Simulated assay, not measured.
Amino acid sequence: MEASKLGSFFESFHVGDVIEHSLSKTIFESDNNLFSLLTMNHHPVHLNADYASKQHHGKILVVGTLVFSLVVGITVPDISGKAIANLNYESVNHLHPVFIGDTIYAKTVILEKRESKSRKDSGLIKVETTGFNQDGTDVLKFTRTVLVKKAQS
């Protein structure tokens, strides 16, 4: 039996590579409720079916930061499993609403790669990740820079 691999070393990333992440998650009502409670986001459009039915989308919306957190998590085995740190997140764009019962998938493009100036044992990768639903509709897109360990230092 082969041990599971968590993440890749800096040397494994190549600019232009597209990673289609194998993890996915269907968002259940309990996920949305718990996340809303944990993060103190009690807006009724996320928790009150009657209220949400009278709003623009006509049903409960999943909290946007839950979608963001989920997509980041989906990428961990492939992108940041060997990371020393996520240095920044930028350009977080919510592209389409997410509803209870949607299944979220993700893919990542390697945008940039460079040696770390301050740490000889690591390098930086800049990636753009897109989260999409079961219909292939993009729901979220963001970029981030990750400090990743080298296999050889």
Rank of each mutant, 00 (worst) to 15 (best):
K126L: 13
D138C: 07
K107D: 01
V92E: 04
L140G: 04
I84R: 07
L87W: 14
S80G: 14
V92C: 03
N133T: 09
N88G: 05
T108D: 07
I125S: 01
G101W: 00
D102K: 08
N93W: 07
K126P: 05
D138W: 06
E112L: 02
K149I: 11
A106V: 00
N93R: 15
R144D: 05
I104T: 07
A83M: 10
T130Y: 03
A106I: 00
E128I: 01
L111S: 00
N93H: 14
D121F: 08
I84Y: 02
R114M: 11
S80V: 06
D135F: 05
V109W: 12
K150L: 04
Q152I: 15
L124Y: 15
L147Q: 14
A151H: 14
P77Q: 08
Y89I: 04
S91Y: 09
R119W: 04
T137H: 11
Q134T: 07
E115P: 04
L140Y: 02
N88F: 08
Q152V: 15
V139E: 00
I100H: 14
K82V: 10
R119F: 06
T129M: 06
Q134R: 07
K107C: 03
F99N: 15
S80W: 08
K113N: 05
L111G: 01
K107V: 03
G101E: 10
K107W: 03
F132S: 10
E112K: 15
